[in-house]
C-alpha cells in the first residue's frame, strides 16, 4: 500500500511542500544568513560577522523592550491563568446561566488585535482624561493597559481549556477525597490542581509565548509611546527593520535572538510544568 501511495506524491505532497518552502523554509534560512550581513536589499548583502548582534545588544531601547516584555509576559501569565482558572471552577458548579457566561467571556478572543487595541484606547483615554493625562504619556499606563487588554482577550480562551480539563477529572476521585474528609481548599490544592496539570501546562505555555510575541495590540494601543518606552520586543524588531535605514541587518539579528528566546522559554516552561504532571 505504501508503494501505491508513494507514486502519488506530486498530488498529495507537492502543493504543501512548495508553499511551505516559499512561505517558511526559504525566508527562515535567508533570515539566519542575513543576520550576519549588512544590507538594504538582498543583492548588496555583505558578510559582517557578529557585528549586527553586537549592535543589537548595544541598543538601549532594545534592552529596555527586552525587560519590559519579560515583565509583561510574567504578569500577564499570572493574571490570565489565575482568573481563567477561577472562572472555570465557578462555571463548572452548575450555576444558572453558565452557557451565556461562557459565550460572553470567550467572545473577545475572536476580535483582531488591531481592533482590540483601538477599542481599549478609547476606553483608557476616556478614563484617564479627567486626571488630565493620557495613555501615551506614561509607559506604565501602557503596560497595565496592555495587561487589561490581553486579559480581556485571552481569559475566555484559557477558561475553555480549563473547563475541558475540569470536566475530564473522574468524579470518583473527587468523591473519594470528600469521603476521606478533605476540606474544600485541600481538595482544590491536593486533588484538582495536580489532576489539572496537563491543562495548566498548555495554558501557561500559550500565555507566556503569546506575551512574548505580542505585536498587534502593542502597535494599536500605544505604538510604543511615550518615546518607545512601551515598545515590546516584536514591535522593536519591526521598527528596527522599517524605521531605520541601514539597520536591516541589526533588525534581523534581533529577530534571531527573539526566535531563540521564544523557543527557549517555551521549552523551559514546558519542562517545568510537565514534571509536575501526575499519571492518571
Amino acid at each position: 500500500m505504501e508503494k501505491a501511495i508513494k507514486r502519488y506524491f506530486p498530488i498529495f505532497l507537492l502543493p504543501t511542500l512548495i508553499a511551505f518552502t516559499i512561505g517558511f523554509i526559504v525566508p527562515f534560512i535567508m533570515g539566519i544568513w542575513l543576520s550576519f550581513c549588512e544590507f538594504t536589499t538582498v543583492t548588496d548583502a555583505t558578510f559582517v560577522g557578529l557585528s549586527n548582534y553586537i549592535k543589537a545588544f548595544q541598543d538601549p531601547i532594545f534592552l529596555h523592550s527586552f525587560w519590559y516584555t519579560a515583565l509583561f509576559a510574567v504578569v500577564s501569565l499570572v493574571v490570565i491563568n489565575v482568573i481563567a482558572f477561577a472562572i472555570a471552577l465557578a462555571l463548572t458548579q452548575k450555576l444558572r446561566g453558565t452557557n451565556i457566561f461562557r459565550t460572553v467571556f470567550f467572545m473577545p478572543n475572536l476580535i483582531g488585535g488591531i481592533v482590540l487595541g483601538y477599542i481599549w484606547q478609547l476606553i483608557f483615554n476616556g478614563l484617564l482624561a479627567p486626571m488630565a493625562t493620557a495613555l501615551n504619556l506614561n509607559e506604565w499606563y501602557g503596560f497595565w493597559g496592555l495587561i487589561i487588554l490581553v486579559a480581556w482577550q485571552q481569559i475566555g480562551y484559557m477558561m475553555i481549556i480549563y473547563i475541558a480539563g475540569l470536566q475530564s477529572i473522574p468524579g470518583d476521585v473527587m468523591e473519594a477525597a470528600a469521603i476521606d474528609g478533605a476540606s474544600g481548599p485541600q481538595r482544590l490544592f491536593k486533588v484538582t490542581i495536580p489532576m489539572m496539570m496537563p491543562s495548566i501546562t498548555i495554558c501557561t505555555f500559550l500565555s507566556v509565548v503569546n506575551g512574548f510575541k505580542l505585536f498587534d495590540q502593542n502597535l494599536s494601543l500605544t505604538a510604543g509611546e511615550p518615546s518607545k518606552m512601551s515598545e515590546m520586543l516584536a514591535l522593536n524588531i519591526y521598527n528596527t527593520f522599517y524605521g531605520r535605514t541601514g539597520w536591516e541587518g541589526v533588525g534581523q539579528a534581533k529577530a534571531v535572538v527573539f526566535f531563540i528566546l521564544v523557543v527557549a522559554i517555551g521549552l523551559i516552561q514546558l519542562k517545568a510544568t510537565r514534571s509536575k504532571e501526575v499519571q492518571q
Partner: peptide
Amino acid sequence: ILCVFSMVVPFQMVMFTLSLVT
C-alpha cells in the same frame, strides 16, 4: 519535524525575508 518546528517560530523571524521573497 519541520512543520512542528515552524509552529514555534515567531513571525518576526521571517517577516522581512518573507516580504522580499513574495
